[in-house]
């Protein structure tokens, strides 16, 4: 029996599933990370992922191409990012309440439009999602081929986005500005850069990524849209950002670790299902998120200006 549990780790299927499960979290965590690095907590994440899942799926269902679907999701995510930025950045309103409002608005609008467009569907209709793309040669390597190189293009996009965001944050003027906006916005303004603009672009970009993370669920992981399918992944991503200490490379690590445990529990559930009720397995990700936060919390150094609105021309 115990060997069965260990054997899971040596199946290529487990590792492939880990990567698959990690993808939406990778997008979402990167998105949240960009926002928070610039000083804005984006609690809109859960709703933005939800509407991203709906819009990407719906675009394809209405006849658009798969890549157009991703773009549509990103676009809608960006719009909610803009709404968030107007409130939290330009008006300096409470980031907590703004985020909750955006989450409520994004998810309810998503559900509303879904019901409006497809009022009578009882069983959710399906689309033809992204198909696995075997990387030539590499995919033929035993074990590693199946684990790493037989994924959908959307999956490769998630992995590429880690590299892109890493580069953006660490090697470009914009990334540097984001880091400064989250640490000491006055320093940024003193160098002649518009803090509100930098923060807004960060929130918009981050929100677009979150929506793409949602779209991954309906366009690559599954092939249909269900209500409540995001199921807390947004909140988990926020925990992962803290676990990742606001670094993209650690976000990837965190998402993989997390997804690995998730993939493992699904398989372990099949072995132990009779003994342990499935709900306890489903609780695991949420418990793990809290534990990850506890581990990270003590030594974490938050971006110093996180949650603090910047108001131009205010007397200091």
């Amino acid at each position: 029996m115990i060997f069965d549990f260990i054997e899971i780790l040596f199946t290529a299927g487990f590792w492939a599933a880990t990567i698959r499960i990690a993808c939406p979290l990778i997008f979402a965590t990167l998105g949240e990370l960009i926002c928070e690095r610039s000083g804005v907590l984006n609690l809109g994440i859960e709703g933005i992922m939800s509407i991203g899942a709906m819009v990407g799926w719906m675009a394809v269902y209405q006849g658009a191409g798969l890549y157009s679907g991703i773009l549509a999701a990103a676009f809608v995510g960006a719009i909610f990012g803009l709404i968030h930025a107007i409130f939290s950045v330009y008006l300096g309103a409470s980031q907590h309440v703004t985020g909750i409002g955006v989450t409520m608005l994004a998810s309810s609008l998503g559900f509303f439009s879904f019901k409006l467009i497809l009022p009578y569907s009882t069983t959710p209709p399906k689309i033809e999602p992204f198909q696995p793309l075997d990387i030539p040669l590499l995919s033929d390597i035993p074990f590693f081929g199946e684990a790493l190189f037989q994924h959908t293009p959307f999956t490769y996009l998630a992995l590429a986005s880690v590299i892109i965001i890493f580069w953006l944050i660490n090697s470009t003027p914009f990334g540097l500005s984001i880091k400064m906006a989250g640490e000491n916005p006055m320093a940024l303004e003193a160098q002649g850069i518009d803090v509100l603009f930098v923060r807004s672009v960060a929130v918009i970009l981050g929100s677009a990524l979150m929506a793409v993370g949602g779209a991954y669920l309906t366009m690559s992981a599954f092939d249909a849209f269900y209500f409540g399918m995001v199921n807390g992944r947004g909140w988990i991503a926020i925990a992962l950002v803290i676990f990742a200490t606001w670094k993209p490379e650690r976000a990837l690590l965190g998402a993989l670790l997390f997804a690995g445990l998730d993939a493992y529990q699904v398989r372990a559930q099949q072995l132990a299902g009779a003994v342990v009720p499935y709900q306890f397995f489903l609780m695991m990700p949420f418990f793990l998120s809290i534990i990850a936060m506890i581990i990270a919390a003590k030594k974490t150094r938050y971006p110093k200006a996180l949650l603090i609105p910047f108001r131009r021309g205010e007397r200091h």
Partner: peptide, 20 residues
């Protein structure tokens, strides 16, 4: 005592309780 952000923990706990 550990500076663990309550926004996230309370949100995550919702899911745990509903599953319970």
């Amino acid at each position: 005592y550990y500076k663990v952000d309550e926004v996230v923990t309370t949100l995550l706990t919702n899911f745990i309780v509903v599953l319970l």
